[in-house]
Amino acid sequence: MASDEKKAEILKGLHDSVVEYEEEKTVEVANEAVAEGLDAFEAIMGGLAKGMETVGDLYVRQEYFVPELLLCADALYAGLEVLKPHLKAESHAEPRKIILGVVEGDIHDIGKNLVKVMFDAAGWQVFDLGADVKIERFAEEQKKCGAQVVGLSALMTTSMLAIPRIIKTLRDSDSTVRVLVGGAPLNPDIAASYGADGYADNAGEAVEQAMKMLQQA
């Protein structure tokens, strides 16, 4: 078992190597965490995910932009790959599930991809349907995987008109599903008028919103 000091050092190492988008170093420290017998769940949440939280803040403060975020995400995923096989059964009993997709007619997927990273970092199981996703597919996939939350992204005023239709097909198929929406042309008012359960302005807030929605459910 690692000493508290060693543990703190490893968690900081995971955090920092994600923030500094050092993919190889992240893998190195993750391996060290395993070798030192650190709890994998703790290493993920207290190290990798925390790092991604810092990255989210740097992005909101415009110190990081999309290129940095993508590389931080690469480091995060590399670390997760090392640590996930070591998760104990009880620590990831039933992960929360979210479906993500950019709506039909819209190929703007950069924002959605960042949202996906934040959910991955927070330990959710993400079903990413990609971009230009046909209306009916969201409900079909939700039925298959039983995701509690569906996240819809639209970057154009044209494509955002598909959102209320998607929400209707989702509700018709499962009245308990929660819908989170985002993307530049949307705002809380439009989101509410479309019948969405929540809206988030950026990738960092998305996870927070989703958690809130589940608590209200």
Binding site: E104, G105, D106, I107, D132, S159, L161, A162
Partner: peptide, 25 residues
């Protein structure tokens, strides 16, 4: 706005359906 991919040998999809506004890769 998606100009460039097709010209260099990628595939582009012409807009179809109710919500498409422009060609996309």
């Amino acid at each position: 706005a998606s100009y460039g991919g097709w010209e260099f040998g990628g595939e582009i999809k012409m807009p179809e359906g109710e919500w498409q506004q422009a060609p996309s890769h």
